[in-house]
């Protein structure tokens, strides 16, 4: 009885400690109090790793999600006789939800896991300690460029995802299902608002990017320096990153739609 109580307490303390550590870690990355900026060429190199190399999966996923949305939407809308609204449906669901969320989930799997593994291995091979000994701040040199690269890349990827999805949807709706092309685009333009739909979707992507990259970097930094520790840290990144995206998505949607 006392033992269970003690175990629960110890576990709670461990979680609190973890949250506190990740907070301090983030403050160190952002360089608060020190005011350093991430060196530009390192950010560009990281954008190449997390952004440009993620393009193939984002492009293919975007086109296919758009095409599937058009197929599914057509079968539902045609039972109300309003197939013409399919452009509106595809565009709104991509811009508001699928674009940011699916891109973020793919980003966790493609880029987040890679970041964790890379940094975990750096820690295991004591590269981070070596940097500190040489007087190089690993937060400035390793972590900060990766965080900014993630924050820049994901909104850009989400934009491309939505755009390609809309064109994929147009291909299926117009060429395969025979919806009139003019009404596909006109209905879309009539109902999609630039600030309420496009920009709010991008704000979501920005928040997801920040949280995912933070989680990925923290798990890499916090990993036990063994091969098993790295594998556990990578798993934790993917699981927690995906859950964080889905949970935050609900909160952000509720706040932005003004449901409360």
């Amino acid at each position: 009885m006392i033992n269970t109580l003690a175990q629960t307490g110890a576990r709670c303390l461990l979680v609190c400690q973890l949250i506190g550590r990740s907070g301090v870690f983030l403050i160190n990355i952002l360089g608060w109090g020190k005011g350093f900026k991430a060196p530009c060429h390192r950010v560009i190199k990281q954008i190449h790793h997390v952004g440009v190399l993620s393009l193939p999966i984002i492009v293919v996923a975007g086109i296919f999600v758009g095409m599937v949305l058009a197929l599914q939407g057509y079968s539902i809308l045609s039972s109300y006789g309003s197939q013409e609204a399919i452009g509106q449906m595809v565009a709104l669901s991509l811009l508001r939800e699928f674009g940011p969320v699916v891109t973020a989930l793919l980003f966790v799997g493609r880029a987040g896991s890679a970041l964790t593994a890379e940094i975990g291995l750096m820690k295991t091979t004591e590269q981070l300690s070596a940097m500190e000994i040489m007087g190089v701040d690993p937060f400035k040199r390793v972590f900060s460029p990766r965080l900014w690269a993630g924050v820049i890349s994901l909104p850009l990827l989400a934009t491309l995802f939505s755009l390609l999805g809309i064109f994929g949807g147009a291909f299926v709706a117009v060429n395969l299902l025979g919806v009139y092309e003019g009404s596909y685009w006109a209905n879309m333009q009539g109902s999609v608002l630039f600030f309420d739909d496009v920009i709010k979707g991008l704000i979501k992507a920005l928040v997801f990017a920040f949280v995912i990259t933070w989680i990925a970097l923290f798990h890499g930094w916090n990993a036990r320096p063994t091969s098993e520790g790295i594998s556990q840290a990578t798993t934790a990144t993917v699981v927690q990153g995906s859950l964080a995206v889905l949970g935050l998505d609900f909160i952000l949607t509720a706040v932005m739609l003004g449901g409360f």
């Binding site: 909104p155 934009t159 685009w185 333009q189 999609v192 630039f194 739909d197 991008l202």
Partner: peptide, 23 residues
């Protein structure tokens, strides 16, 4: 590659603004 990626995404945003949301 990074430059092309960023510019492609910016053009994509412009298309979203003009062609999709009819801004």
């Amino acid at each position: 590659g990074v430059g092309a990626f960023v510019i492609a995404a910016m053009v994509g945003l412009l298309v979203l603004a003009l062609n999709v949301s009819g801004l």
